[in-house]
Design a protein around this nucleic acid. Structure first.
Length: 425
RNA sequence: GGAGGGGUGGCCGAGUGGUUGAAGGCGCACGCUUGGAAAGCGUGUAUACCUUUACGGGUAUCGGGGGUUCGAAUCCCUUCCUCUCCGCCA
């Protein structure tokens, strides 16, 4: 959520930023919030004045009562009726306006960083880097959903029976691969100085609001209505919320967390042939890295996170590319996002396997996540996170890219985790 | 799930209707003291919003929400959390 006072100060720059996201009349939108906030302030001032009168009267009455001057006290009591009436009205108005300001702020996404390009579709995402070698496969090569069936690695039918579409059963060497990747990804993050955390995968409403899944993305999450709790769509939610309502001191930095969790996504309305196999699931495994940073350091830290993910993908010997998302494709809360895509040769398709973002203060404003500067000022911190990595699509790419007539070769780095180096019949 | 006890500032802890944003202590900061340190003494030490060039002033906040009252940390309702005992249990 943006800060109104900051919008006011940077209105031209913010307006331009929203244009990058495809907003037609951003200036009007921004001015509307500012005006609503002005109204809020004046109502607040008027209310405070009434409350002040009331407080003064109460004090007087207290003193008179103690002095035994009941009659004088009763006289003042009568006068307070008007004030109370007035402050009640003002309170109601104020609450309405406060809600309006909040609702308007909820509708304004984060302002893109200056590096983010204008764009009208995902075709305008900028290619930043390419790495690895595209595999040359013979024409008998298959997509992973066929390979999975051939080698009995994942059972989708069983998933349908027990849970529903999008809830696969991993079996045999497939299950082993999932477990190996999770462990490998976690170990690599730990080696890069991230603190491992195993968080809950069910969170309350406050947490879902604080990281921005609510109010408008409730369709993304599974909701447990009897207890009003949510299944997490990503470990970002519990990990970042650790720092909700926290004021960090200098010695608390750096804050680097890594967590493995299953992730749950309803993905309402996005089902079809293009999401076959492991490409898109309701439940999947992901290792997530999260950092909290001082504003002046956050972009350097973002580069570090990018480097970490890049190394991870390279170590798996997968062809990949890094894209910087354009304004149109940028997530609502993000100021800048880099997507990592891996080429999956059996489908002849790029699969997004990681998305790393700097949210600047957009999340921390809702989280009330701050830090103390050397001068003792309390400022909003920056939050960043990235996938490192999402398991099923990596699994798919490994299977497809490494297939041959005799079987599937496993990347070297996973051998110690797997206990095997080749999948064959 | 049953029965009971609690949630107060960075921490401990007092406070059951009236100049209480909150005694006292610890911690922390600064100053005095000292050869130096400790002890001692003094001063200061919450957050948010509004207002003021500044000094300052105002409002709200004693788990959250609502109510009673001129006035609530204190009374009532509701909700969350927590502790103890019993039950159940991986």
């Amino acid at each position: 959520m943006l800060v109104v006072s900051v919008i006011r100060k940077n209105i031209d720059q913010y307006s331009l930023g929203l244009q990058k996201r495809g907003f037609k009349e951003p200036m009007a939108l921004l001015n509307r919030v500012i005006e609503a906030d002005e109204l809020r302030k004046s109502l607040q001032a008027a209310l405070d004045e009434q409350l002040n009168k009331l407080n003064l009267s109460s004090k007087k009455i207290g003193i008179l009562m103690q002095a035994g001057k009941q009659d004088e006290a009763r006289q003042i009591k009568l006068e307070t009726a008007n004030i109370k009436e007035e402050s009640k009205l003002l309170t109601e108005k104020l609450q309405m306006v406060e809600k309006e300001v909040r609702d308007q702020l909820y509708q304004i996404p984060n302002i893109p960083n200056e590096q983010v390009a204008f764009g009208v579709s995902e075709a305008d995402n900028e290619l930043i880097h390419e790495g690895g070698v595209l595999p040359v496969l013979d024409e008998k090569s298959k997509p992973h959903w066929d390979l999975i069936a051939d080698y009995n690695l994942v059972d989708f039918n069983l998933g349908n029976k027990i849970s529903g579409a999008g809830f696969p059963f991993y079996k045999n060497q497939g299950a082993r691969m999932v477990r190996a990747m999770i462990n490998y990804f976690l170990d690599q993050a730990i080696a890069s100085g991230y603190q491992e955390i195993q968080p809950p995968i069910i969170v309350n409403e406050d947490s879902a609001y604080a990281t921005g899944q609510l109010p408008d993305k409730e369709g993304q999450m599974y909701h447990l209505s009897d207890t009003n709790l949510y299944l997490i769509p990503t470990a970002e939610v519990p990990l970042t919320n650790i720092y909700r309502d926290v004021i960090l001191k200098d010695q608390d930095f750096p804050v680097k967390m890594v967590g493995y969790t299953p992730c749950f996504r309803r993905e309402a309305g996005s089902w079809g042939a293009h999401v076959r196999g492991l490409n898109r699931l309701h439940q999947f495994d992901k290792v997530e890295i999260v950092q909290i940073a001082k504003p002046e350091e956050s972009y350097e830290i973002l580069q570090g996170m990018i480097a970490h993910i890049q190394q991870l993908i390279e170590s798996l010997e997968l062809p990949y590319r890094i894209l910087r998302l354009c304004g149109k494709d940028l997530g609502f809360s993000s100021a800048i996002t880099y997507d990592f895509e891996v080429f999956s040769a059996g489908q002849n398709k790029w699969l997004e396997v990681s998305s790393v973002s700097n949210f600047e203060t957009y999340q921390s404003n809702r989280l009330k996540l701050r830090y103390t500067t050397e001068e003792g000022k309390k400022l909003l911190a920056h939050t960043l996170n990235g996938s490192a990595l999402a398991v099923p699509r990596i699994l798919a790419a490994i299977l497809e890219n490494n297939q041959s007539s005799t079987g599937i070769k496993m990347p070297k780095v996973l051998h110690p985790y797997l206990g095997f180096d080749f999948i064959s019949k």
